[in-house]
Simulated scan of single mutants.
Amino acid sequence: MHIDWGALAGVFGVSLGITVVVVVMFSLGLAAWARTGHGEPAPGMPRGRHRKVATATAVLCFAACLAVAAYGIDLIVPG
């Protein structure tokens, strides 16, 4: 049995990189969501456009995480 160590290292590197990207994107989404005042009221947070941009940023970050997870499931599940 022959193991292609270069390919194995490549798969490890890509999976580690994608994992880091997803964790960072989810963390940024949580931070943006907290800035909008969702969950608990945030008395010192500004209103208006800043809140809308933070909400849009949070939604985009969560959507990116969901897309990566869905793509991974699509690769694993046959059919």
Rank of each mutant, 00 (worst) to 15 (best):
A70I: 07
R35M: 13
V53K: 01
I3H: 14
L66Y: 06
L60D: 00
I73C: 08
C65S: 11
G39L: 04
R49I: 03
A67I: 05
A58L: 05
V11D: 15
G29F: 09
G13H: 07
M1F: 13
I73Q: 03
A58S: 14
A69V: 15
G29R: 02
V11K: 15
G44F: 03
G10K: 09
F62N: 01
G13S: 10
G79V: 10
H50R: 11
A7R: 14
V21D: 07
H2R: 13
C61M: 08
V14G: 06
F62I: 02
G44D: 15
A56Y: 00
A56T: 09
A69E: 02
A42K: 13
L66P: 00
M25G: 03
G10A: 06
V77K: 13
A42I: 03
R51H: 07
F12M: 15
G48P: 05
L28S: 06
A58K: 08
F62G: 04
C65Y: 00
V11W: 14
T57C: 09
L75G: 08
H50T: 08
V14A: 14
G29Q: 07
G48Q: 06
E40R: 09
T57F: 08
H50A: 14
A9W: 11
T36K: 03
P46E: 05
P41T: 09
S15P: 00
F26Q: 08
R35A: 14
